[in-house]
Amino acid sequence: MAVHFHEEDLPEGVLAPGPVAVDTETMGLVTPRDRLCLVQISDGQGDEHLVRFAVDSAFAAPNLKAVLADPARLKLFHFARFDLAAIEHYLGVTAAPVFCTKIASKLTRTYTDRHGLKNLVQELLGADISKAQQSSDWGASEINEAQRDYAASDVRFLHRLHEVFVTRLAREGRSELAQACFDFLPTRARLDLAGWAEQDIFSHA
């Protein structure tokens, strides 16, 4: 297992075919204001790739964009809604089709309100990840080893979680409902970007 660090784009041909786990790190939680700094991606074979974007980046990244926009590749996220918005706003591509482990958790782990990635990894995989670097400065000129390890851990377990949740969704009879939610996620992200982040447009109010 290794963590590979790249500037501005993913090298061509470094990922095996099939689903990829994806995550992002930004300067904050307001997507149009807080720039995209890092995209993490893994093919589930043991290595993680981190693509860092500079403060003056043009976000060209043709190889990364090709993978993210590939309709034949399933993209695995945890809280896809945020990452999809950041990817669409800065990279200009829709990263679909999607599987979101946070949504899958909420649809199957109804016995708890703890749906963070750390909780899922602990309960379902018996592993532990540190969230100490979650709020660190991702726009710094140097990304330190602790930040790199944290960023890599955010995609390291998503393939295994995907397998668990596919089984659990089927067990609970919620696979079709989950798929409908996943299919809607790119639109949900666009609503966020367009100004409807906090308003439920489906409510009567």
Rank of each mutant, 00 (worst) to 15 (best):
M1I: 12
V3L: 00
F5T: 13
F5K: 08
E7P: 01
E7L: 05
E7V: 09
D9S: 01
D9A: 09
D9V: 06
L10E: 02
P11Q: 00
G13V: 08
V14W: 03
V14Q: 03
V14Y: 00
P17K: 10
G18M: 13
G18Y: 13
G18I: 08
V20A: 13
A21K: 07
A21W: 02
E25C: 02
T26D: 08
M27R: 11
G28R: 01
L29Q: 04
L29T: 07
T31W: 09
V39E: 14
Q40I: 03
I41L: 15
I41Q: 12
S42M: 06
S42N: 06
D43F: 05
Q45S: 14
D47I: 07
H49Q: 01
L50R: 00
L50F: 04
L50V: 06
F53P: 02
V55H: 14
D56M: 03
F59P: 04
F59R: 04
N63T: 07
L64R: 11
L64T: 09
K65L: 09
A66Q: 15
V67L: 13
L68S: 02
L68T: 06
A69R: 08
D70G: 08
A72H: 03
A72P: 00
R73A: 00
L74Q: 05
K75W: 00
K75T: 02
F77T: 01
F79D: 06
D83P: 05
A86L: 06
A86C: 10
I87G: 01
H89T: 03
H89D: 04
L91A: 03
T94A: 08
A95L: 13
F99W: 04
C100M: 00
C100S: 05
T101H: 10
I103A: 09
A104E: 12
S105V: 14
K106A: 14
K106T: 09
T108M: 10
Y111E: 15
Y111A: 15
R114T: 14
G116W: 08
N119L: 13
Q122I: 15
L125N: 04
L125K: 10
G126P: 08
A127D: 10
A127M: 12
S130M: 09
Q134V: 10
Q134M: 13
S136F: 12
D137Q: 13
E142G: 00
E142M: 05
Q147G: 03
R148K: 06
R148E: 05
R148G: 07
A151S: 10
A151V: 06
V155R: 10
V155I: 05
V155N: 05
R156W: 04
L158Q: 10
L158T: 03
H159P: 11
L161K: 10
L161D: 15
H162W: 15
F165S: 06
F165C: 08
V166I: 12
T167E: 15
R168T: 07
A170T: 13
A170I: 12
R171N: 13
R171G: 14
R171I: 15
E176C: 08
Q179N: 02
D183Q: 05
D183V: 08
P186Y: 00
T187M: 14
A189C: 03
A194R: 11
A194L: 15
G195H: 01
W196V: 14
D200F: 02
S203L: 03
A205S: 15
